[in-house]
Simulated assay, not measured.
Amino acid sequence: MGRSFASSGRRSLLRGAAASFGAGILPGALRPALGASPLKPVAEEDALVAFGHTGPITDGGWTTAHDLGVQAVRKAFPKLKTVFVESIPYSADATRIFRQFVAEGAQLVISTSNYGDFIKDVADRAPDVGFLECDGHTVTGNLGWYYITHWYASYIIGIAAGLMTKTNQLGYVGTFPIPSVYASANATLLGAQSVNPACTMRAIAINAWFDPQAATQAASALVDSGCDFLCGITDEPAYLRVAEARGIKAAMWNLGMRQFGPKAYVSSVTLDFSRFYVEQVRARLNGSWRGAPHFLTLSDGVDRDAWGETVPPDIAARADAMRTRILAGYNPFRGPIRDNTGAIRVPEGTVLNDDAIYQWDWGVQGMTGLG
Rank of each mutant, 00 (worst) to 15 (best):
residue 3 R to V: 11
residue 10 R to L: 07
residue 12 S to Y: 05
residue 18 A to W: 07
residue 18 A to C: 04
residue 19 A to W: 14
residue 27 P to W: 10
residue 29 A to R: 14
residue 32 P to D: 04
residue 32 P to A: 08
residue 34 L to C: 03
residue 37 S to H: 13
residue 44 E to Y: 09
residue 47 A to Q: 12
residue 50 A to T: 13
residue 55 G to A: 12
residue 58 T to L: 05
residue 63 T to R: 09
residue 68 L to V: 14
residue 68 L to R: 15
residue 70 V to F: 06
residue 75 K to M: 02
residue 79 K to Q: 12
residue 83 V to H: 00
residue 88 I to E: 06
residue 89 P to W: 09
residue 90 Y to H: 07
residue 91 S to L: 06
residue 92 A to Q: 13
residue 97 I to M: 07
residue 99 R to I: 01
residue 103 A to I: 13
residue 103 A to F: 10
residue 103 A to T: 14
residue 103 A to L: 10
residue 104 E to S: 13
residue 105 G to N: 09
residue 106 A to L: 03
residue 109 V to M: 02
residue 110 I to L: 09
residue 111 S to M: 05
residue 116 G to T: 08
residue 124 D to Q: 14
residue 126 A to E: 11
residue 128 D to K: 15
residue 130 G to E: 02
residue 135 D to I: 13
residue 139 V to H: 05
residue 140 T to Y: 05
residue 141 G to V: 05
residue 147 Y to L: 08
residue 148 I to W: 06
residue 152 Y to R: 10
residue 152 Y to T: 04
residue 152 Y to H: 12
residue 154 S to G: 02
residue 155 Y to F: 15
residue 155 Y to V: 06
residue 158 G to I: 11
residue 161 A to F: 11
residue 162 G to F: 09
residue 163 L to W: 11
residue 164 M to K: 04
residue 166 K to E: 10
residue 168 N to L: 06
residue 169 Q to R: 15
residue 171 G to R: 13
residue 175 T to I: 06
residue 185 A to P: 00
residue 188 T to D: 00
residue 189 L to R: 08
residue 197 P to C: 08
residue 198 A to Q: 13
residue 212 P to V: 10
residue 217 Q to R: 15
residue 221 A to C: 01
residue 222 L to E: 00
residue 223 V to F: 03
residue 223 V to G: 00
residue 231 C to P: 00
residue 232 G to A: 02
residue 237 P to N: 07
residue 241 R to A: 05
residue 243 A to I: 10
residue 253 W to E: 00
residue 258 R to F: 11
residue 260 F to W: 15
residue 269 V to L: 03
residue 270 T to A: 03
residue 274 S to R: 14
residue 275 R to P: 00
residue 280 Q to C: 04
residue 281 V to S: 08
residue 282 R to F: 03
residue 283 A to G: 11
residue 285 L to I: 13
residue 290 R to K: 15
residue 290 R to C: 02
residue 292 A to M: 13
residue 294 H to D: 00
residue 297 T to V: 12
residue 297 T to W: 04
residue 300 D to N: 14
residue 308 G to Y: 07
residue 309 E to L: 12
residue 310 T to K: 14
residue 316 A to S: 10
residue 316 A to Q: 13
residue 319 A to V: 06
residue 322 M to K: 14
residue 323 R to E: 02
residue 324 T to Y: 05
residue 326 I to N: 02
residue 329 G to Y: 07
residue 329 G to W: 07
residue 336 P to N: 01
residue 339 D to V: 01
residue 341 T to G: 04
residue 341 T to F: 08
residue 343 A to R: 15
residue 348 E to L: 11
residue 350 T to K: 14
residue 351 V to L: 08
residue 352 L to F: 04
residue 353 N to K: 09
residue 357 I to G: 00
residue 357 I to A: 00
residue 360 W to Q: 02
residue 360 W to N: 00
residue 365 Q to F: 11
residue 366 G to E: 06
residue 367 M to I: 00
residue 369 G to N: 03
residue 369 G to K: 10
